[in-house]
Simulated assay, not measured.
Amino acid sequence: MSDNLNYELLNQFAEVYSSKEDPLLAAVNDFTQKNHAEPHMLSGHVQGLLLKMFSLMIRPQRILEIGTFTGYSALCLAEGLTEDGCLHTIESREHTAAIAQNFFDQSPIGHKIKLHTGLAADIIPQLDETWDMVFIDADKTGYINYFELVLPKVRKNGFIFADNIFFHGEALKENAKGKSGKAVKEFNNYINNRTDIEKVVLTVRDGLYLIRKR
């Protein structure tokens, strides 16, 4: 690979040469950018399409999302659900959950999404499901705990996706700074050292760990 590749240009290329953003997703994106204090937390166009494609390939019956935010990634993931499928998504902040629910209500597949408001560590043990897919995109200090909570309930050959594993480049440094950067670096090492899973790092956006349960 050429050393002259520009990361920003690659991102722009990905935006232009990927399928256009769905109108409802564009509305979620626009609202979040204009009204939320942390719009960078949105999955966004290219990563959203990637999640949708993975879901369509896997055709999951049950998906768990930890970290709903304003609902963009949940709407993408729900596209691949089976006819009787359901996506459970957890958001800790009531105001943000209400925004997501409003967008779910506008979607023709919104009835397949069940939104839970509260702490993921409390809600996950209450969900009596076997997961085909799990998407972890919540507080970074909780990543290892969330992984340990969900792995026993993931079916054999099921998948876990963990977002933001670069954490703006901080987790790539030898001495990561800040509690979130340090937590993500610890999570990455924890996943890398496990032998009961297969994993691959995807260099999309802020880094995505794709993990398969053996």
Rank of each mutant, 00 (worst) to 15 (best):
K173G: 00
G118L: 01
H111C: 08
F147R: 01
M57W: 11
W131S: 03
F161H: 09
V28I: 15
L5D: 08
I197M: 11
T32Y: 11
R155Y: 04
K20H: 10
I144R: 08
S180P: 09
N4P: 00
D122A: 12
K20L: 09
E94K: 13
T203N: 14
Q33W: 08
K177S: 12
P125Y: 02
T96D: 01
G178K: 01
K153Y: 09
F187Y: 14
K182Q: 02
L75A: 04
K114H: 15
F161K: 05
S92F: 13
N193W: 04
K140F: 00
N29S: 13
S55M: 13
A120K: 05
A138K: 02
L119Y: 11
E38S: 12
D137K: 05
I144Y: 02
L5W: 05
E170I: 02
A162H: 10
L9Y: 14
H45K: 06
G181M: 02
P125D: 05
K112Y: 05
C86L: 13
N164P: 03
L64A: 03
I58A: 08
S19D: 02
N6D: 15
N193S: 07
L49K: 01
I90Q: 07
F187I: 10
H45E: 06
F104Y: 15
D196M: 11
V200T: 08
G80T: 12
P152S: 15
R214C: 05
D105P: 01
T89Q: 06
I66E: 03
C76P: 02
S107Q: 06
G158N: 15
H36W: 06
W131E: 07
F147E: 01
Y72R: 00
G181P: 00
D137I: 08
H111V: 06
A162V: 15
R59D: 09
T82C: 07
E79T: 03
Y72W: 04
R59T: 08
N145A: 09
A138R: 01
I63M: 12
E79Y: 09
M1Y: 10
F31D: 08
P152F: 14
I109F: 10
G67W: 13
R155I: 08
A98I: 09
Y7F: 10
G48F: 00
L87V: 08
H95L: 15
L81A: 05
A100Y: 00
K114F: 14
H88P: 11
I63G: 07
K140Y: 01
N4A: 04
E8P: 05
F166V: 02
I191T: 02
I136P: 00
P39F: 06
Y7N: 10
N29I: 13
Y209K: 13
I123L: 12
K52Q: 07
I58L: 14
P60A: 14
F147S: 03
E38R: 13
A74N: 11
